[in-house]
């Protein structure tokens, strides 16, 4: 170790490995429905796509969680996003292709992608 800057750089790299364990009050939660219905409809690739996208952008304050059946099995895979200061947004019939747009527009810029939400399905 030659300098404080070197230590800082190492810390920045290492922090990603423990970031998950912080007690968080703020930050965004991406909750993927992973009951049998969700998994059958393809929730796993959707979840992996979220993880990849979040990692690629090095977003620090976003966690991906799973949940059980929400009850609307015909609209699975369902993903709910809880962002601080915003109402919960429910996205339906998710595909890995839709994920990148949701991450960039909704999670990063705060603009809900309305056409993918449950509202757009006329419910």
């Amino acid at each position: 170790m030659k300098s404080l800057a070197e230590l800082q750089a190492l810390k920045q790299k290492a922090i990603e490995n423990v970031n998950l364990r912080k007690e968080r009050e703020d930050g965004t939660r991406v909750v993927v429905g992973m009951a049998t219905c969700g998994i059958a409809a393809g929730a796993r690739p959707v979840m992996t796509a979220f993880l990849e996208e979040i990692n690629k952008r090095k977003l620090q304050n976003v966690v991906v969680e799973q949940t059980g059946c929400i009850g609307l099995c015909r609209l699975e895979p369902i993903v709910e996003i809880y962002a601080p200061g915003q109402d919960k947004v429910t996205y339906i019939k998710m595909t890995p292709e839709k994920v990148a747009r949701i991450v960039s527009e909704h999670i990063v810029n705060g603009q809900v992608v309305s056409e993918y939400t449950i509202g757009a399905a006329g419910m």
């Binding site: 404080l4 230590l7 190492l10 490995n17 423990v18």
Partner: peptide, 18 residues
């Protein structure tokens, strides 16, 4: 050790020495 560094480990030593 990297997990310790991630939670501010060895920052104090660095600060003290420099």
């Amino acid at each position: 050790i990297e997990e310790y560094i991630a939670v501010d480990g060895y920052q104090a030593l660095g600060k003290v020495l420099t």
